[in-house]
Design a protein around this nucleic acid. Structure first.
Lengths: 215, 215
DNA sequence: TGTACATCAGTGAACGCGCGTTCACTGATGTAC
DNA sequence: TGTACATCAGTGAACGCGCGTTCACTGATGTAC
């Protein structure tokens, strides 16, 4: 029953073409957003005929699902890698910001406007658990904030299912959550261009929010 | 040169049909998002032929632009009305949350994923100025926060163009900005469904963020 | 090493669809005398 | 109050388009003996 651990040339080729398709799909998304993603356009860009792509993705939706999963994985891996090289919470914050600025539409594919009917594939919950674990690991060693434990921290202590059994204290749970929501708040508005023309430096606002999280 | 102040029946009729078109457009957007908005589908829903809508909107883009402006106006008016009835910053926060929960896709039409090419019409900047003024009015009378003035507040003091000449002190500018970004962070993640299955109560998280803003 | 066969990537034609938008028109509503 | 004319809302046909997707096929790549 020994399974072959080396991929056949065909398998390698398939994986490579799949990757190339996703590459071009990302370019299209970056240029005009998800709604403009078209299988035929991707095929044309690759010098192939439209139907050829159906050897690699069963449908447009399956391609998008693969892109969503890849985006999630990329973010989780980016944070995990930063954490592995000794980054603290501030390091994670900047890794997150850099990742988001690299490709705003990739960020929005995860955290942007949801399509009312669509539900993300199930395995993304596992990946966001992994992200949460990385955040909680970075929050746990921090000293408790100035203010005494909030009522919401108490609420979190009783509803910590999302932490996946992580032994972080309530204040760490609270901090990880606000790390997520506050930085998302600043980042998403910045990426969407809502700060342009306002005059201040978005990077400084981000830094200020981060500072507040660490205090 | 006296201009008639009473609208002709035809003008009244036109305004009413325009409103009805937008009404149906909102229903479609609520059901399947902006990309699914189709002039023909709206017309069919109204029992009209497709081309008839071109008497009221020059193109699909112009209809969307009108919807964006209406959404902005609705939010600004909601906050202004709350403020006029004596609401403090906490009152504005809850008015904002209620407004967003009423129609998530309307919220996302303003603050959601941007379409790379598209730029909002210019008059929206005037409306968001109005929103900012309402926020600043509510922030001005609050006592300075515990922590001393942050470096970012100093930065804002020198880059206060977005405040439209409002005489609020730097800490108020900072508070109005974080009011916006933090509540948007919590709200947008909640509306996008990123909290579902996590176990905690999004309303309590919102309240906790608001509490922190007021301290 | 060479031949016979199976696998499978990619093509081209075709389908049905709904989209935004134009155009020439009909018929009702409003205006002027 | 009645007639003649202008305005304009709405229709139906039509255009061109690009989409996702299917299908029967060709030809190259890999496998088995």
């Amino acid at each position: 029953m020994g399974q072959e651990d080396t991929k056949t040339p065909r398998e390698r080729y398939r994986a490579q073409v799949r990757a190339e398709i996703k590459e071009h799909a990302w370019e299209q998304i970056a240029a005009a957003g998800v709604p403009a993603l078209s299988l035929n356009a991707v095929a044309k860009q690759m010098g192939m005929s439209g139907p050829a792509l159906y050897r690699y993705f069963a449908s447009r939706d399956e391609l998008i699902t693969a892109l969503v999963r890849d985006a999630y994985l990329s973010l989780a891996e980016t944070l995990r890698a930063a954490s592995a090289t000794g980054a603290d919470l501030a390091g994670l914050a900047h890794a997150l910001r850099d990742w988001a600025l690299t490709d705003p539409q990739r960020y929005f594919l995860i955290y942007g406007t949801p399509v009312p009917g669509y539900h993300a594939p199930e395995d993304t919950t596992g990946i966001s658990d992994q992200i949460m674990t990385t955040l909680l690991d970075a929050c746990a060693p921090l000293p408790a904030p100035d203010r005494s434990a909030s009522p919401f921290s108490a609420h979190l202590a009783e509803h910590r299912g999302w932490a996946g059994g992580h032994p972080a204290p309530p204040v760490a749970l609270h901090r990880a959550l606000t790390f997520w929501t506050r930085l998302h708040g600043v980042l998403s508005l910045e990426l969407a261009g809502h700060f342009t023309g306002m005059g201040f430096d978005p990077a400084l606002l981000f830094a200020a929010e981060l500072d507040d999280l660490l205090s």
